[in-house]
Each structure stands twice: as C-alpha cells, then as structure tokens.
C-alpha cells in the first residue's frame, strides 16, 4: 500500500459516501444516472468475486464489502425507493448502457492476463469501469446544470482512478516485475473520459458557482 493508492481508495470511498448522503438525506437522485450506477454494481460484482477465495487484508475485504454494498443499495434506492425514484430523470437517462457490456465481455475474452473464469471477469470489470461513467456524462450534458453534491460525486469518482495511476507509476518503480498493461490502459482511458468534466468543474469551482 502506498499513499497514492490509499488516497485513491479514500477518494473513491468519499465519492460513494457523497452520493449516499445525497440520496439518503435529501431523498433525491436528481442528475444522477441510474445506468451508470447499474454498471458500477456489475463492475464490483465481477471484480470482487475473489472476495471468498483470496484474502489480501482486512482493509481490502472491508473496502470490497463497502463498495459492493453501497453500489447495490444505490441502485435499489434509485429503482425502488418511492421518494428517491420520483426524482430520477428517466426521460434523460437513456444511454444504451447494455451496449457497453457485451463489447467489454468480448474484449475481456480476447485480451486478459490469464484465461480463467475469475481473471476474465476481473478483466471485464476493468473494461466496464472504464466506460461506466458515460451514461452519467451524457446525462450531465443534457441536464446542463447540476447540484454541487452530484458535481462533487463525479469529480471524486473521476479523481480516484487518476490517483491509482500515480500508484501504478510508484509501484512500477519500486516493485520489480510490477507490470499490468491492461489495468494501466483501462485506468488511463477511464480517467481521460473525465477530462472535459474536470475542465468545466475547475472553471466553475474557481468561479465559486455550481457545476454547469
């Protein structure tokens, strides 16, 4: 564990907590894409299958449970909780996210580190996470103005993988044989997809107004 990865995990945790805070306290999911949340639930479900087979650390297992629990409960809230579901913008959240799942699965079957069930699903979760934010970014452009909590959520979610990139650079130089091209490229693509959001986020942030 290094400071970059810890910062990345804490940023990721913060993004989840901000979203849960918004949904649970003000009972609103305005501006939040249910489709992105569904993709993230699939990402964690396929990435953390090894939670039962390989134990890395208490921290690792605890965080996996947090991310699994939060992503599924956010989907449940947005789908079935009456008050929250009412604030879900179904008409605008129309990105065909299921069209993302199949290509990621095919790509994982073609490009992976090991051809085993767990490894292919793990690789699939990497590819899917890289594009999971797309429905949210599309929804963002359609709804133009979003509230600060949603803006913070997206900023933190985009930032965590950026910090992971620093972690990979650090591990590459400090650990022999630490080379994971698939993870690195997927992480880079994922972070680059946030580029224009970051641009507008900092513009607004510096201007001290909400994210538009």
């Amino acid at each position: 564990m290094n400071i970059f990865r810890l910062a990345g995990d804490m940023t990721h945790l913060a993004s989840v907590l901000v979203l849960l805070l918004k949904i649970h306290t003000i009972k609103s999911c305005a501006g939040v894409s249910l489709r992105t949340q569904e993709l993230y639930a699939i990402v964690f479900a396929t990435r953390y299958l090894d939670i039962f087979t390989s134990f890395v650390s208490v921290y690792n297992t605890f965080m996996k449970l947090v991310f699994l629990g939060s992503s599924f409960s956010i989907v449940w809230y947005m789908r079935y909780h009456k008050a929250v579901h009412r604030t879900y913008d179904r008409e605008q959240d129309t990105f065909r996210h299921w069209f993302l799942v199949l290509p990621c699965l095919v790509l994982a079957l073609l490009i992976h580190e090991k051809f085993t069930f767990l490894e292919v699903l793990w690789t699939f979760s990497l590819y899917l996470e890289a594009v999971a934010i797309l429905p949210q970014l599309v929804l963002l452009q359609r709804t133009r103005n979003i509230d600060n909590l949603t803006g913070q959520y997206i900023f933190l979610l985009g930032g965590y993988r950026g910090l992971y990139i620093l972690n990979w650079i650090y591990r590459y130089f400090t650990e022999p044989h630490f080379v994971h091209w698939i993870t690195w490229i997927a992480g880079l693509v994922q972070t680059l997809l946030y580029a224009d959001f970051f641009y507008y986020y900092f513009l607004r942030f510096i201007g001290g107004r909400g994210v538009e």
Binding site: R5, D9, H12, D50, S54, V56, S57, N60, M63, K64, F67, E113, K114, W122, Y164, N167, H180, T183
Partner: peptide, 10 residues
Amino acid sequence: KDDAAAHDEL
C-alpha cells in the same frame, strides 16, 4: 507474489 493473489488492489 504468486499470480493468483496478483489482484491486491481494489
């Protein structure tokens, strides 16, 4: 670290 536990990241 053997490959099986290669995924030590979240």
